[in-house]
Simulated assay, not measured.
Amino acid sequence: MNKIDPRFTVQFIAQKDGQLLREALQEWRISKRALTAIKFDGGLLTVNGVERNVRYILQLGDCVEVTFPPEEKSDGLAVEHGDLTIVYEDEAILVVDKPAHQNTIPSREHPTGSIANMVCGHFQQQGLASTAHIVTRLDRDTSGLLCIAKHAHIHHLTGLAQRSREISRKYEAIVHGHVEQDSQSIVAPIGRNEMSIIEREVRADGQYAHTDVTVLKRFFLDSEPMTYIRLQLHTGRTHQIRVHMAYLGHPLVGDDLYGGSRRSIDRQALHCVSLDMAHPLTNEPLQFTSMLTNDILRLLG
């Protein structure tokens, strides 16, 4: 009985006559790092079923198969088995709905129990030779949708999509005070606060950061003014929404790191409600949504 090859494989059809395989692979967005791994770590390049190197000259219609070497999980990333709320899964990506109070990846304070740990367990059960490649990370106390690539090549493709802003994420949050403008863009650079290893702040020498804010509802909770807002990220800086809203003078409810109060909720009231992207292999448009969690809904009454 033949053993199933656990290695990840993609196929392409040559579109040009006389093109070097190396040039075609570059057009098909196979990274140089991946080609090095294929050459030295147990991958394979074939043309019409015959092993070839990158100097091979292609003919129109040739079938090229790229087999990536098996991946090893990162050192220190323990395989754990636990509950994952899976929204979507195929051979390339996994989209999960993350609860609050769970790390996306392990930290010094929380070395186990993260989404990444659980994903490694999930992959192990599938017999998948891969590790957890996080595409869209969420803070520990932020809930909602996050995307994981199943292979390094898929992670490379989704990284290219993120840099060209082809992955769109929307969040909903509740902030202190009544935000005056119904819609606005916050474009303010974010960098590390020199007095803290965790905290970020708006600072002139920070990285470009852009957040769009739309007011959904202004209300009072126990006579305190609050605003329910939707946010769209155009960049993905650490703590971006939390920093930008604090900078605006409206910190997230529950976000005591950036000036919010935990009187009504024990974490920042922030949830990733939608994730839109093109499938990294088929280019098919994918749209995912997630309902607000009960602790945030309670604030809205």
Rank of each mutant, 00 (worst) to 15 (best):
C120E: 15
R230P: 04
H210R: 09
S183I: 00
E72K: 15
Q59P: 00
L281A: 08
R267F: 01
H271Q: 04
E199W: 02
E72A: 14
R55W: 08
E284T: 14
P6L: 04
D97C: 05
L275E: 00
V10S: 10
Q15M: 10
L77S: 10
T136S: 12
Y247F: 15
N117C: 08
T158Q: 02
N193D: 15
T158R: 01
D141N: 14
A269K: 00
R263Q: 11
L231E: 00
G18F: 09
D97G: 01
E166I: 00
F219T: 05
E109I: 07
G49H: 13
L20F: 12
E27K: 14
I154Q: 07
S31N: 12
F220D: 13
T211Q: 07
G177C: 04
G121T: 09
R267L: 00
E89P: 06
H244I: 03
E71N: 13
N294C: 02
P280R: 07
R165Y: 02
I93V: 15
T211H: 08
L297N: 11
H176Q: 06
G254M: 10
I134C: 09
G82S: 11
L77P: 10
G144W: 03
G82I: 11
M245E: 05
K39F: 11
D62H: 12
P189H: 13
L216I: 12
H81R: 13
S183T: 03
L45A: 05
D62F: 09
G49E: 12
R22D: 10
L231W: 00
C120M: 11
R137G: 04
A92H: 15
E284W: 04
E27I: 08
H155P: 01
Q15I: 10
E27L: 13
H176F: 01
H122G: 06
H110N: 15
R192E: 10
R298K: 15
V96K: 02
E80V: 11
E89Q: 14
I167S: 02
A152F: 03
T235M: 08
N48G: 11
Y171I: 01
A149V: 02
G42R: 07
R298M: 13
E27P: 02
R7K: 10
Q19I: 14
E89S: 13
L297E: 13
A173C: 05
S223A: 11
M291F: 11
L128R: 14
V66Q: 06
A100K: 07
H234T: 11
V202A: 07
P6I: 07
G191E: 10
E89K: 06
S261E: 05
D97Y: 03
M195F: 14
Q207I: 08
R165K: 06
M226R: 02
K16Q: 13
D255M: 04
S185A: 07
Q102W: 01
Q15K: 14
Y258G: 03
L146G: 08
S183V: 00
E180M: 12
R242K: 05
D256W: 11
E71I: 12
N2G: 12
C63L: 15
S130F: 11
T238R: 08
G43L: 05
R140C: 01
R237Q: 01
G113Q: 01
N53E: 15
I174W: 04
A92S: 15
E71S: 10
E89F: 04
F123Q: 05
R33W: 02
G301W: 03
M245V: 07
T85G: 01
V273G: 00
